[in-house]
Design a binder for these strands. Sequence first.
DNA 1: CGCTCAGTTGACGAATTTCAAAGATGGTGG
DNA 2: CCACCATCTTTGAAATTCGTCAACTGAGCG
Lengths: 259, 259
Amino acid sequence: MSQAVSRTSGSLNRVDAPVTRLVPDPLEKMLRSCGRTARPGQLLVMAGAETDTVLCVLSGWLSLSKCLPDGEIQIVDFALPGEIVETGAAGGSVSAVNIEALTDASVAVMPAPTWAAMKRERPDLGRISSCIRAAARARSAERMLRLGRGRAVMRMAYALLELNIRLEAIGQSKAGRFHLPMNQRVLGDFVGLSSVHVCRTLGQLVGNGIIGVQGHMTVQIREIDVLAEMAGVDLQTLQYGILADTDFIPPALACPAYA
Amino acid sequence: MSQAVSRTSGSLNRVDAPVTRLVPDPLEKMLRSCGRTARPGQLLVMAGAETDTVLCVLSGWLSLSKCLPDGEIQIVDFALPGEIVETGAAGGSVSAVNIEALTDASVAVMPAPTWAAMKRERPDLGRISSCIRAAARARSAERMLRLGRGRAVMRMAYALLELNIRLEAIGQSKAGRFHLPMNQRVLGDFVGLSSVHVCRTLGQLVGNGIIGVQGHMTVQIREIDVLAEMAGVDLQTLQYGILADTDFIPPALACPAYA
DNA sequence: CGCTCAGTTGACGAATTTCAAAGATGGTGG
DNA sequence: CCACCATCTTTGAAATTCGTCAACTGAGCG
């Protein structure tokens, strides 16, 4: 696993995302010093393995997933550039999920104590990471709601909207157009559908002119309001709730309790 | 909502659960001073409402749930005695979920800044609450996996095992026997099934002698290994992963980084 | 050119929901 | 104590949704 994750020194910091946007030099140095790259398909953390680490995604997509004994996979979340993933589960330092690179990715892998020390130095980090956690929780709840109660179209519509919002925030979606670095099977692992049904569901959305799909998964949302209705979401509220965009944090809250 | 949550002064501290077990007097006083009680069905926090608070469950069950526009409900998690719920979502202090009492419950409702101050005073609190968060994340991932990929029996089996483990840790399950303070419709909202299918699925488990059910939801697990196989879990691993039991925290980790 | 892999399509079957109605159960007031 | 009520559970049958199987297409690539 880890031998496959090679060191890197270059191009770690060209991402305009919350972490790197907000946080000053010393942290940047630390991020750079823990930098790793991974190739698509590479496993960074294995469920059940000891890893008391914190991952900062600098570029690329990671998937957090779990497996059933029969091999069925569910992707629990994607980690996008600027996001922070704490791997430890409850009883110590065992990861609850597989963490895998979906694209070429560069990730800062920090031991938990290092991260804790860093947080003590930079109190704003605590606030930022708690925002990122809250956003992840909110997304997780939205998805769980639709996994448990929504039909295929709703799950798909929601997934597309969520990804559009998140990608827009890091400049990877423009005018409702973004690239999904995965095939339909993997998308199915995210929305809880078979690849065949992903195909049909996407086809239905395309047929109605609600979205367009080009090549291997470049999506264009054409009728975002219709899509939002299908997903059962209010766009404004959703954006506010699932985005850890630090612009949303009232300056007053950014510090005082920790200063 | 809040007018319905009346003050209480008695019986706040008879629970043998992580928070109260571990944490010394000053916190206990604070918990008591923010104490509230709620009756079954009472809404404590409404999704979308401003509430920058932290809830400590002292006794009783809370449900964290979300709703679709058509009224379908998904319970995202239960909060049991000893657990801590941070209500804020990402963009400020809006809750992502409805928080509702399933039973008579007593809950300490603390403003987030108060909680933050408390954490600065008692560094162990940070470690504890981070453990509780990690356990909740792990549970959420397990459930998402089964919502997306598991059949009814698997979802149900997993839910029963998870609750058994959690209840055992707080002395509310003994020898695989515990009470679920909810009807089958609510249990369905948790596992993502219609109430009718909850009935059939439970009936199937009862018919096979794997569990017994008495009255309004007292469950007796009879063949825990079979149930675990149906749920697709390894019992040991699951317990280790979804429990924020503080016994699991190595003493060495409990403090040094924060001391 | 043939290979492989991802996407597509149709047909079928299994799992689950929905609808409807018939028992249970528990609580309440007479 | 009993009758009544509301709520919950159970059961059956029909309808839906989705997964699986299988065949076919199409693009990329050696």
